[in-house]
Design a protein around this nucleic acid. Structure first.
Lengths: 246, 246
DNA sequence: CGCTAATGCGTATCATATACGCAAAGCGTA
DNA sequence: TACGCTTTGCGTATATGATACGCATTAGCG
């Protein structure tokens, strides 16, 4: 399998960047990398990352567990493939769009949606992205700032800032609903109300009392997300104005 | 063990909030919860979360694997204890400090340090915090905004924004060094330079060329963090001014 | 001086990842 | 067309890890 000696890259990356050998001589594959990755993504979406085992994946694909290893070097490799494939293509815009704020907002909202649909991404993306899928998203975000006077390092800093926020907000949002299936008095809000002793946690107790943690069904779930994003982009706006003046 | 029926809380939370029964009659414990949690944290710090298994933990403590289960309901339970203990106490300040920005900055910097010392926290903290340790940090952050005209919901939003950023930045920073141990030409920067085709990823290619991903040993590692945090707090400042005017 | 309750832990079971090697099955060539 | 190369599918085996269950040990209490 390690045809290219000296290359320490994970197998998945070589495949993703089109560096795999052509092959074509042997037995007709009943399995394909695409099918495996798609099934893995579906399984992780439906039952969570913890439920994704090689055995359950093989079961879902109707093949033997060990068959998967002909297409994937291991579980980590599979994770890389999943991370590269799940987000899909990023929104497209010019290299230097006139409306940086609109572009970046669109990017953030679409990425937020990706995280909501695939909550496991946040748990897997522990290493810096090196696959074409994630780099395309990164490039798109950098492009959205192409028309601003920010220097390259500041642009990257802004993109990371937005990325961290998107990821964190999505992770928080997807971690709550599991609790809400119980009775109403077992909600996170109710629990906090019971635990947040005003003498020990005064600020927290006041927040609980103000209903900060009580879910509001009347508003869209990403309203809070948009509000936070606006705060954030206001800060970016300040930096851009400052850079334009200098 | 489940003495309180109907209470679906994880065992760890009952202990952490002082709801455990007093005990005291039986054999003298050779093991204690504190020792277990401390050893688990040390192990995760040194060798990563993946290396933390009940067996290896028992080995380090000089006891049999199954002995741990007398103090901890399971591995998830252990994780909860670790999350509650590792951060230590948050910085203390008044309920309504005059300098919100200074307070919040201090909070963020100290939390950043916690994440750097215990990178596994970012991987474990998937559910909303319910233990006294993490709630103390949350309360401290909310306090730092006590003197501002922001309403409770906005305060929480700001705290979450900062939290997400701290966490993301720390996770990014701790994920890179593992790569840097290799030769210089296997750095993330070098790899990106090779992969970022200017035709396909123009903005990314330009950033690589500008040296954005090249580590700069002359600057402190958290300089970038502070810069991003300043952007972020500028945005919060805008919101505060706006709220003061309304 | 047993009685009771709590601890330490041996044994067993089950899930999971994965190394290894053989058998099945197309393709090219003689 | 038959042979052999190549690549896929997968059975078997092993190692690691979580954890249920039950028993023996031991410390306070009556």
């Amino acid at each position: 399998m390690p045809d290219d000696i000296g290359n320490e890259l994970p197998h998945a990356l070589n495949v993703l960047w089109g560096r795999a050998k052509p092959k074509g001589r042997g037995r007709t594959p009943a399995l394909s990398l695409e099918r495996i990755v798609a099934a893995a993504i579906a399984l992780a979406d439906e039952e969570g990352l913890a439920a994704l085992s090689m055995a359950r994946l093989a079961e879902r694909l109707g093949c033997a567990p060990m068959s998967l290893y002909r297409h994937v070097a291991g579980k980590d490799d599979l994770h890389l493939f999943m991370l590269a494939a799940a987000p899909g293509p990023p929104p497209e815009f010019d290299t230097a769009p006139a409306d940086w704020r609109g572009s970046l907002t669109r990017w953030a909202v679409e990425l937020f949606d990706v995280y909501l649909r695939h909550p496991w991404i946040a748990q897997l993306a522990n290493s810096p992205p090196m696959d074409p899928g994630q780099l395309a998203w990164l490039d798109a975000a950098l492009r959205s700032l192409g028309g601003t006077p920010l220097d390259p390092r500041a642009r990257f800093s802004v993109v990371m800032l937005v990325l961290h926020y998107v990821r964190g907000a999505a992770q928080l949002l997807t971690s709550i609903p599991a609790e809400r299936e119980e009775r109403a008095d077992e909600t996170y809000a109710a629990l906090l109300a019971e635990l947040a002793d005003p003498a020990r946690f005064p600020a927290l107790a006041r927040a609980v009392e103000a209903g900060v943690f009580t879910p509001r069904p009347e508003t869209a779930p990403d309203d809070d997300f948009r509000a936070g994003l606006d705060h954030l982009l206001n800060g970016v706006g300040v930096a851009i104005e400052r850079a334009a003046r200098a």
